[in-house]
């Protein structure tokens, strides 16, 4: 029989674990709050800029602006996959990596060569272990991503697309719906989706010109798409971690309750046995 002392030791160990998971839950909760504020604060710029760009750009500008080109066939594509730098966030990283792997398989099945760009230590560790060729990787992006981080990721991809080295850019990151719901999401950054042209050039006075405005705004737009993805991904990571740590803390509580019952039973059995022995001994003497 597992002695009462062994059970006691296990209870203490689970209590220590619960202390750690509870602390991580609290840390994630406070980081989540700040990250959510950042997501919200980033929305107005992103929405206004997207509206302007999507309403202005038209396929006929592609001659003047290589960033607008619509390749007929995609021969080579870049995949930018964002993960967290740290684990212990439930299935957060695993979901992103799976989404990335599926996209790689899909593209390769269509005969597309893929450049893999990774942001986040977890994705890097996985694809390095799998022996994938990695075109670039970043593991220095903090919980508080900056526009500069986004430029570092988007700038070179845009240039490669303009030069014709790649024909498409895909972005995989987590969508931040709520702390409980952070599904992975795939976005096509380039080529830009042809717009409906709601805001025709005729309706606005454009300075210097539609092409001139787009030449400046499209790089900002692409960078902002990446920036938003970084900010949302950071918030989603904290949300996923909080959920995972809350579950772990609850499970530890259940386990302690169960072990405490086992401990009490073991202790009671020990006492009963001791009494039985004493009574038996007394009878022997008497």
């Amino acid at each position: 029989m597992a002695g009462a002392r062994d059970v006691k030791r296990r209870i203490r160990s689970v209590e220590n674990t619960r202390q750690i998971t509870r602390t991580m839950e609290l840390v994630a909760t406070s980081k989540l709050k700040r990250a959510t504020d950042r997501v919200r604060a980033a929305r107005p710029y992103s929405e206004a800029l997207s509206a302007i760009v999507s309403s202005l750009h038209a396929p006929e500008y592609a001659e003047a602006l290589p960033v607008l080109r619509q390749p007929e066939r995609i021969r080579r594509a870049a995949v930018l996959l964002m993960t967290a730098n740290r684990g212990l966030a439930g299935a957060f990283n695993a979901n992103l990596i799976r989404e990335g792997r599926q996209l790689l398989e899909r593209l390769r099945a269509d005969g597309v060569e893929v450049d893999l760009h990774l942001a986040g230590r977890k994705g890097l560790a996985y694809f390095r272990f799998r022996g994938e060729a990695i075109a670039s990787s970043r593991i220095d992006i903090s919980d508080d991503p900056t526009v500069g981080d986004a430029e570092g990721l988007s700038g070179s991809l845009r240039e490669a697309f303009e030069a014709g080295g790649i024909d498409a850019v895909y972005l995989i990151s987590s969508e931040f719906r709520s702390a409980m719901s952070t599904p992975p999401r795939m976005l096509q950054l380039l080529p830009l989706q042809p717009s409906e042209g709601a805001l025709s050039a005729g309706a606005f006075i454009l300075s210097p010109s539609a092409v001139g405005v787009l030449r400046d705004l499209i790089p900002l737009y692409l960078r902002n798409m990446v920036y938003r993805a970084l900010v949302e991904n950071a918030a989603a990571e904290q949300g996923a971690r909080r959920t995972a740590m809350k579950n772990a803390t609850d499970n530890a509580g259940d386990m302690i309750e169960h072990l405490t019952r086992t401990y009490n039973r073991a202790r009671q059995a020990q006492i009963t046995q001791e009494i039985a022995e004493i009574v038996g001994g007394a009878e022997g003497v008497g």
């Binding site: 302007i52 202005l56 309706a203 606005f204 006075i205 454009l206 300075s207 210097p208 001139g212 405005v213 400046d216 705004l217």
Partner: peptide
């Protein structure tokens, strides 16, 4: 290309 002023009832306008 220089400073622009905007007053109410301005025409739709987009500038860098």
């Amino acid at each position: 290309d220089g400073k622009v002023g905007v007053l109410p009832s301005h025409a739709p306008f987009l500038t860098l």
